[in-house]
Design a protein around this nucleic acid. Structure first.
Lengths: 239, 239
DNA sequence: GAAAATTTGTTCGTATGTATC
DNA sequence: CGATACATACGAACAAATTTT
């Protein structure tokens, strides 16, 4: 072998924990082609199928549930089903990891500056009239709360999510949501009324470009907006 | 109130499940300022602290464990600790959600085209000589496996992760890792030797730009590379 | 290196709450 | 409203793993 053993990322072998085996088998089946709503069985059925006790199955279920793979319902016709998708779950997972790694303000804004101009550009190409309407409403709503930093930041965040939504790309939408949620979680809003007004004006220009279907202008407007905000540093969470 | 009740996203009230209360309390404490390695107690201690049975605590633990928040160790001086960060964890979370939403090849490549040119640009500004060395090694390794589609795709993926690593931005690194892992999971590698050689040459040009510290050239080279690959469609997973 | 102590892993039995029919 | 099906929760016990003595 020419590869050095030290460079290989070995996977740990775990004999311990029967519930882990149950988890990985169900996960495998999930990726092999199960869909939201598919029936998996009751606790008792699964216990028999895997040859373990109900409590061991419960351990596995809690794990699968926390990963957003299954939904549990009590009562008659209850039991386990494959869960519906939920974008917030991924955002949660990312915030946990970014908290553990101690992510910085700069890293967050850099990542947003990579992703969001693209969402604006795509939104300009794909936004429906309803999308544009929602964005305009969000900008107006933002303007109404310029004096309340916490509320303003929340509404401004909504605007960015709407742009991501209008991009028609769920991977980008998930990324924006995740990054923004960490930002909200780790940094306190502290936006002056003056800054708030400037932000709102920029949001307005972004919507205009999107409504006009001008992808390049939308990208540029979003880029300029983020550049300005990133200079605000960690003290300023205006979005 | 000017808002319509129908437009408000009410949060469901859940009386059920004691373990959920335990989970949310520990999660709150986690975000309020706990760090990797912090001690949380043993199962029995937690059961007493929250006034529930050991099994209920176990349910909570499996959930927290699946979310990557805590680590469990058996034996003397075992018990619960706040986990170390693990980038693979939310790559998993993303792949689950993207599988549930039925993400498409186009959405994935679009997202990558947003994120990766930025990683290349930042890598050009920040890569250490060791980073460059690793990238060159990856390219060479890639070249060696041009004839084996599965192996080649894996190695090509390593290259993209190394670039993201060299960007010094953990949020971007996390995004690349997540997107790429979904791509590997959902689409079979099917790269001809000819395409493999072209990909390797492009990788080489990207490293050259990074080594030269030319951010704009690195961004352009990565962009061009992804443009070519995205045209390959879902049949072609060359990266 | 062997024994003891600590702590999670797993099981059974049972009781209770809740949703559906 | 009653019967049924199902998850939720508790307690007691033993097995297995790991650290300390």
């Amino acid at each position: 072998m020419s590869d050095e053993a030290g460079a290989i990322a070995w996977k740990q072998v775990r004999t311990a924990r029967a519930s882990e085996h149950v988890v990985s088998q169900i996960k495998e089946a999930f990726f092999a082609g199960m869909r939201a709503g598919d029936w998996l069985g009751t606790e008792t059925e699964l216990a028999q199928r895997f040859g373990v006790s109900r409590i061991t199955v419960r351990d596995a279920i809690r794990s699968l549930e926390a990963q957003g793979i299954v939904d549990v319902k009590v009562g008659a016709r209850g039991g386990l089903r494959i869960a519906e998708g939920d974008p917030d779950r991924f955002a949660d997972a990312l915030s946990i990891q970014l908290h553990l790694t101690g992510i910085s303000w700069d890293e967050l804004t850099e990542a947003m500056r990579a992703v969001e101009p693209m969402t604006a550009s795509l939104a300009a190409q794909r936004a429906t009239p309803e999308d544009v309407e929602r964005m305009r409403a969000a900008v107006a709503d933002c303007d109404r709360h310029s004096g309340e930093p916490a509320r303003f930041t929340e509404r401004a965040l909504d605007f960015h999510l709407l742009v991501a939504e209008a991009s028609g790309n769920r991977a980008l939408r998930a990324s924006v949501r995740a990054l923004r949620s960490v930002q909200m979680l780790k940094f306190r809003p502290n936006t002056s009324t003056e800054v708030a007004h400037r932000v709102t004006r920029m949001h307005g220009r972004i919507v205009d470009a999107i409504a006009a279907g001008d992808a390049e202008a939308a990208r540029a407007a979003m880029n300029e907006h983020l550049e300005l905000v990133s200079k605000g540093g960690s003290r300023n969470t205006a979005v």
